[in-house]
């Protein structure tokens, strides 16, 4: 029999997949309800994961693979609360569905935390980083949808702006954590460099609006390509961390 932790994750993934399918079948309202249920199940999973070792370890809640689909779905929930009539953004339900499916394949246990990881700064870092990734992915997806549908919604741009702000906050909280733990705010290594890649790419995006020759379609394409940049910079480490020794789950 499936334990409550796995049950919640499966339920969240099924809700996300159902939301994507319902939206594809032009039933965005039902899809929105399904996303809402998914957020609840995903949230329940994350809270349980904090206690997975028999003692509360917040690092279990903020692991990107499980937190990013939660934030992606929560963004859709917030967008719906702001404008209930226009659910065109619901095409982005594909994102939590895909990330939720990947989370199902991922080890549920936590990497035993070293003393240097047991700080509020690491929790803030992973939370803001995942929220930033979720905004940037969703903005990128809506940009792609804008190219396909040829609509003139600017929603994607706001999401990219807030994604950039959150990702910048993550760099600051991460820098504070690195300073307290290792005495420097930047370390020469793949993790820090790949974060800087994402930051520079979206900093370049922010300048596009002021460049002649970059019409709307080109800007949308650049924003959509950002999804590949984030995936290219983060997916490898997620795969590598699957091999790390874990506890619980």
């Amino acid at each position: 029999m499936m334990n409550p932790l796995s049950l919640c994750l499966w339920a969240a993934a099924v809700c996300y997949a159902a939301a994507a399918i319902l939206t594809f079948l032009k039933r965005a309202g039902a899809g929105y309800a399904s996303i809402t249920a998914g957020v609840i199940f995903n949230g329940a999973f994350l809270i349980q994961r904090g206690w997975i070792a028999g003692v509360f370890v917040p690092n279990g809640i903020v692991e990107g693979v499980f937190l990013t689909p939660f934030f992606m779905a929560a963004i859709l929930l917030l967008l719906g609360l702001r404008n209930r009539r226009d659910l065109s953004f619901m095409s982005a339900a594909v994102l939590p569905a895909l990330f939720g499916a990947f989370a199902l394949l991922y080890p549920r246990g936590i990497i035993p935390p070293t003393p240097n990881k047991l700080t509020v700064w690491s929790v803030l870092f992973f939370m803001t980083e995942s929220a930033g990734h979720a905004c940037l992915y969703t903005g990128g997806w809506l940009a792609l949808a804008g190219i396909i549908r040829r609509d003139d919604s600017e929603r994607y741009h706001s999401l990219l702006l807030w994604g950039f702000v959150l990702f910048s906050v993550a760099q600051v909280t991460g820098a504070l954590w690195a300073f307290l733990g290792w005495g420097s705010v930047f370390r020469w290594g793949s993790r820090h460099l790949q974060s800087a890649v994402i930051w520079c790419y979206f900093a370049a995006y922010l300048h596009l609006r002021f460049l002649p020759g970059w019409d709307r379609i080109k800007r949308l394409a650049f924003a959509a390509a950002g999804m590949i940049v984030i995936a290219g910079c983060t997916f490898g480490s997620s795969l590598a961390e699957m091999k790390f020794p874990r506890i619980g789950g």
């Binding site: 290594g189 800087a196 520079c200 300048h207």
Partner: peptide, 29 residues
Amino acid sequence: FWLLLSAALVMWIGSIICLNNYSLIDSLN
């Protein structure tokens, strides 16, 4: 714009090199 993209590209290449030369690049810290 192009310098930001160049920085992103160089750092991405650097990050791949770091993965295969961890000890060497880590000694720069």
